[in-house]
């Protein structure tokens, strides 16, 4: 536990001093500001557009649902991309540079390093996600008034959970290959495979990648919690599996 706390403190310091935390917070805050704002102005921009043949586009008044649609869309694309770029070097850069060698020879167990890195990355990602969500929520209330959510945790934590999966995958990739290419490659393979698998409707409910785009179906009542449960369970299982594999691989890795 001592080694875990020592390494977590080092990771937090690194996140702060290498501007990892600031970059993530700024990008995620922007997502939070842009989502309701885009939802608000999009009808004004697009309404009245001539679609050709005298057909004029008429859009309905935006609602809070449009704000959350934008939120899920922004977070699953720009937000995830920022998060991936910020954390891609989590294991990879330490292994390629050799900065872990003095640490490991001081007695910090290898498994502790993996768990501490995942823990701190989780804290930062959660913080960034929370900042984004709180800003979006505040503006959504400001523009459209308070709203009741039936299943707020499941509704809004789904993209966060996919972010956690990406973190675990990047740690695994970095541990396996010891460079950024490994971290990014593993995530790319999973994302591409996930999107290809989505073409099969019978597999879609089990595909964690679908969670990245959010659980809008819970907001508009078109889906129930049970519809997302298999994908959430598989996502959690995949995170745990990635971490276990990372520890096993790292323990056997010749440094």
């Amino acid at each position: 536990m001592r080694g875990f706390m020592v390494f977590c403190r080092k990771e937090l310091t690194e996140s702060y001093r290498s501007y990892r935390l600031v970059i993530l917070l700024v990008v995620m805050a922007l997502m939070g500001i842009m989502s309701p704002f885009t939802a608000m102005i999009l009808p004004d921009i697009l309404s009245g557009s001539d679609l050709g043949g005298g057909l004029i586009l008429e859009l309905p008044e935006p609602t809070s649902f449009d704000s959350w649609t934008q939120f899920f869309s922004n977070v699953s694309q720009m937000g995830m991309l920022a998060m991936i770029l910020v954390f891609a070097g989590l294991m990879a850069s330490e292994l390629s540079k050799g900065t872990l060698i003095p640490v490991l020879t001081k007695g910090i167990p290898r498994g502790t390093v993996i768990l501490a890195k995942f823990t701190v990355a989780t804290i930062l990602w959660s913080l960034g996600y929370a900042v984004s969500w709180i800003i979006c929520w505040g503006y959504t209330i400001y523009y459209w008034g308070a709203q009741d959510f039936t299943h707020p945790w499941i509704t809004f934590c789904a993209p966060w959970l996919v972010g956690e999966l990406f973190l675990a995958l990047m740690i695994l990739g970095g541990t396996l290959v010891s460079n950024w290419g490994g971290s990014l490659g593993v995530v790319a393979v999973v994302v591409i495979t996930g999107n290809l698998v989505n073409l099969l409707p019978e597999v879609r409910p089990y595909n964690p990648i679908t969670l990245a785009a959010g659980t809008l179906g819970l907001l508009d009542g078109s889906h129930s919690v049970e519809d997302f449960t298999p994908a959430i369970a598989i996502c959690v299982g995949a995170i745990v599996l990635c971490l276990i594999l990372s520890i096993v691989v790292f323990k056997r890795k010749q440094l």
Partner: peptide, 27 residues
């Protein structure tokens, strides 16, 4: 105690800070 041929440290730390980190890691 181990001194690698090309020791690599965290560049954002200061020397005393790194020694504190190393000492904490060593218990």
């Amino acid at each position: 105690g181990y001194l690698p041929d090309v020791p690599q440290f965290y560049p954002y730390m200061r020397g005393r800070e790194y020694l504190k980190f190393s000492g904490e890691a060593a218990g």
